[in-house]
Design a protein around this nucleic acid. Structure first.
Length: 583
DNA sequence: GTAGGGTTAG
């Protein structure tokens, strides 16, 4: 039996430390700790653990670790508390090291430890450790524990092993909000947006619980799909649920509407927010940029400073907005200021935007100069944007230099050869065109397959190049030929240089007509009433010929066409596009 | 006493 005095002191210290934990009062916590040392009071495991918790919660991890290391005896709770401290501050290596130390010390991890340690295996690079933990928890029978299982499935989802994540999810004896959200967001993060939506619909019909996190993930998936109907429906559901205000959810709505082509709705969400974070502003800026509205980007950027501090993404959004909106001088000004005042925020991406800007305005030598003198290593995408500019401005000299660099960096990318051969073709240098084509056939590999989709009546219709499986294939083929005749009569000339294969011209025309975005546009034209905007999405950048095709369709059939490619929106009306033919 | 899921960009 302990002395009454010791017991009283225990209670006093315990109460004091608990108060510090609740109030996150680090200074006071240190004082209590110091008092204990002066009084030569040696805390046993429980109070020692409380001290660790206090330091962890107050963000003083190194102090916490000091206490842990000096404890004469440690419990599973003391170890777990410390590991969790590391996990939550993304000190994953230390978290895993400590977990190993704990096991070497003979301590048996419990469900708390395992759920925690799995969060310290983030991404594909730590899949090896993650699998080791997995095998441990199979042995200890924790695989189907609710918390451990959802942590495990999230680990697999984040390491891009969505099938394994799904297997774990399907094995859980029950499902709760967190496990459901984790698997849905797993699909969304991997870009499997349709799967995310399907799973949500299934689980929702089975009565799953949802909260703001679930909706945040779901809305992200809908942004990827560009499904305005579903987006509006889910937004309405969110409003009906009367959830408390959550910035991240509102931010995802801003992004979703802008990616669905409804900037006004984005702005409405943005304006109605009780509180905005820098992410809210960034999402809105990106939205304007994606739609080519450079002036709105600049004006919003000015307003932003009154409310939040711009970050690296902000600058990227503004520069890319200026580039897409054609505001060359404004963009260069903003960049110059950033170099002087916020250079710590700048990285390759920002330089890429500026090089794009310079290229767009035809200042190709300057752009080349900036690449060579920027404080970062150049990337293929930067050289690629410059090569595109060389095509637009028909500059063979710089084009050759850039292409040489680019073909060394990524010889397997067919797109680069195509652009270079286009540059030569425009200059009438046919021998060189031929050389490049030959080189391309020898070196390139097949790229990511292009696909386009259109959503009609909440059904997603996906098209691949030279679609062979769509049920309406025959009708689409007939219609596309009809369109071809109509737009040719209006002056459309197929751009055969967009075809990568070495075949005769007639076959080239046929291949061009098989491009997925043309199929989707045609399908839209066939299945929507006159006057309705045709909204088509594509997973890659749109090719010059398809862009031209869409322009002519918008003119000849008097239809507005909204095309969202990988990077931005094209709104085509009366034969013109909001991108100004530069993308 | 200790635990799992979320937003812009890349």
């Amino acid at each position: 039996m302990a002395l009454p005095g010791a017991s009283a002191r225990f209670h006093e210290y315990e109460a004091a430390i608990t108060a510090c934990i609740e109030r996150r009062a680090l200074r006071e916590g240190r004082q209590v700790h110091a008092r204990m040392i002066t009084a030569r009071y040696r805390p046993a495991v429980f109070l020692g653990t409380r001290l660790v918790t206090m330091y962890v919660r107050c963000g003083a991890l190194d102090d916490a670790r000091n206490v842990l290391d000096r404890m004469p005896e440690r419990s599973v709770v003391s170890w777990t508390t410390m590991i969790s401290g590391y996990s939550q501050t993304e000190r994953h290596v230390e978290a895993l090291d400590l977990f190993i130390k704990m096991r070497r010390a003979g301590c048996i991890p419990n469900e708390y430890t395992l759920a925690t340690v799995l969060t310290s295996c983030p991404g594909p690079q730590s899949i090896y450790q993650g699998k080791q933990v997995h095998s441990l928890l199979v042995k200890t029978n924790f695989e189907s524990h609710m918390f451990v299982g959802s942590s495990l499935l999230d680990m697999y989802a984040k390491s891009e092993n969505i099938q394994e994540a799904r297997r774990v999810f399907d094995m859980l004896p029950e499902r709760d909000v967190v496990s459901c959200t984790a698997i849905i967001s797993g699909y969304a993060q991997k870009g499997l947006d349709e799967e995310a939506l399907d799973l949500f619909r299934q689980l929702y019909s089975e009565g799953m619980q949802c909260n703001h996190v679930t909706f945040t993930s779901l809305v992200t998936a809908l942004s990827g799909l560009a499904s305005l109907d579903y987006g509006k429906q889910v937004h309405a559901l969110i409003l009906r649920k009367e959830l408390p205000f959550f910035v991240a959810l509102q931010n995802s709505l801003i992004d979703m509407y802008s990616k669905c082509g409804k900037l006004l709705y984005s702005r409405r969400v943005f304006d109605n927010m009780l509180e905005r974070s820098v992410v809210s502003w960034n999402a809105m800026l990106m939205g304007y940029g994606r739609h080519g509205l450079g002036h709105e980007v600049i004006s919003l950027f000015k307003d932003l400073h009154k409310e939040v501090k711009p970050d690296s993404v902000t600058l990227l959004a503004v520069l890319s907005g200026c580039s897409h909106g054609g505001l060359v001088d404004e963009g260069l000004d903003i960049f110059d200021t950033a170099v002087k005042e916020q250079s710590a925020l700048l990285h390759t991406g920002h330089y890429g935007c500026v090089i794009d800007l310079l290229g767009r305005s035809g200042r190709l030598e300057k752009a080349l100069n900036l690449i060579e003198n920027m404080p970062f290593e150049s990337t293929p995408s930067i050289w690629g944007s410059l090569l595109g500019a060389c095509r637009v401005h028909a500059n063979v000299h710089v084009g050759e230099l850039v292409a040489q660099k680019l073909l060394e960096m990524e010889p397997e990318n067919a797109g680069n050869y195509v652009i270079l051969s286009n540059i030569y073709a425009a200059a009438g240098m046919w021998k060189d065109v031929f050389k490049v084509r030959k080189l391309m056939l020898e070196k390139t590999v097949t790229k990511e397959p292009g696909q386009s989709w259109i959503i009609l009546d909440k059904v997603i219709h996906t098209f691949h190049s030279s679609e062979r499986f769509h049920p309406s294939k025959k009708d689409i083929n007939a219609k596309i030929k009809e369109i071809f005749v109509d737009i040719k009569a209006a002056g459309f000339v197929p751009d055969l240089s967009c075809v990568l294969h070495d075949v005769d011209d007639e076959q080239k025309e046929r291949m061009l007509l098989g491009h997925s975005e043309k199929l989707a546009i045609t399908f839209g034209l066939m299945n929507t009433p006159p006057g309705l905007t045709i909204r088509v999405m594509k997973n890659l950048r749109i090719c010059v010929d398809c862009h031209n095709f869409a322009k002519f369709v918008s003119k000849v059939y008097e239809r507005e066409i909204s095309l969202r490619d990988k990077n931005r929106f094209h709104l085509l009306t009366h034969g013109n596009c909001t991108c100004g033919d530069y993308w």
